[in-house]
Design a protein around this nucleic acid. Sequence first.
DNA 1: GTCTATAATACGATAGAC
DNA 2: GTCTATCGTATTATAGAC
Lengths: 188, 188
Amino acid sequence: MDTETKSKIIETARKLFTRKGYFNTSIRDISREAGLSIGAIYHYFNGKEDIAEYLYNDTLQFLMRNLKEALVDEKYAKEEFMRIIEVFYRLTDEFPDIMEYALYVKHREIMRDNRTICSSEPFEYIMKIVSDAIVKEEIRDMDPLLATATLMGLPIRLITLKLDGVIQDSLFNYVDETFDSCWRALRR
Amino acid sequence: MDTETKSKIIETARKLFTRKGYFNTSIRDISREAGLSIGAIYHYFNGKEDIAEYLYNDTLQFLMRNLKEALVDEKYAKEEFMRIIEVFYRLTDEFPDIMEYALYVKHREIMRDNRTICSSEPFEYIMKIVSDAIVKEEIRDMDPLLATATLMGLPIRLITLKLDGVIQDSLFNYVDETFDSCWRALRR
DNA sequence: GTCTATAATACGATAGAC
DNA sequence: GTCTATCGTATTATAGAC
């Protein structure tokens, strides 16, 4: 198992799926862009759907790993929220392909029996943090789902604007103002 | 020109493009679902891409018409923001297919030389309202783009959750709380 | 204006050589 | 492990009958 070849296939697929969409990307496109033959791709994956499933899990794990790393040692909601915004903005700057894949690609179209992004692990993880903050009275009392959407709505919107090219400069310039807006909406 | 037939094609295409994606929907799918022949469809449109372009413009016009109607007679930012949230939530309840199409379908994948949703007419219209509110000092001073994202981030996030089935009940139950969060973030 | 039939092409997947 | 050749199918779009 040549992991480098497999990785090359995955990263090429991520780029093409994000740029052109899953159904508009053919196995031939991936083989051409990756400089590999169709046979090589079928050696590592059972088909296009298999690539998409691997990519989906890979993306979720990537987000969870970065999210957990960012929140190590943080105890208070205020700092946790700041770290969450920071890590999402940093990832958007550094790995726009991955973030675009996570936000845009409609995984339900591709895979059967698939959870929505919103019931996926990263979303539940953040909602748990927000719920705890409500219980500990670090933010005002509100529906946990609404509170989570209040925290993530603005950052996700800005990430979308960045990925769409409406925002040109680094999202890191927006961390403080984003947090400020979110915190005004959530604080007691 | 039988406008009823044309309308049938458009609404079927909207439903299928939204549910299965543009590239995964064939002309045959549309003809089957609409109860029309392929020939009939090609009589009204020059092809799949032409349908998508018509649909795109139709959706933008629909949003603009409803947005303008909702804002008739409103003078103050606070009321305008409330009306904007209300109308988006009502449209999501009443026309989920249209809202899903507006939010989800990646039009850039489909049409060449196409503006992003964010530089489209409804977005610019809302940004103008927000900019005016800043000038009139009805909300605090901040970057207009960030202020617009602060206003729309949470509503768009909730609409996404509703369309994904995470939220089951009517979005109208969330109007007051949504506005409350947005206003806390924007008020002086 | 609506239909069926079909042409031309592209697709996912497989087979088998090396 | 990587390649080329190819099969069967589905696609967009067109032609021409009614």
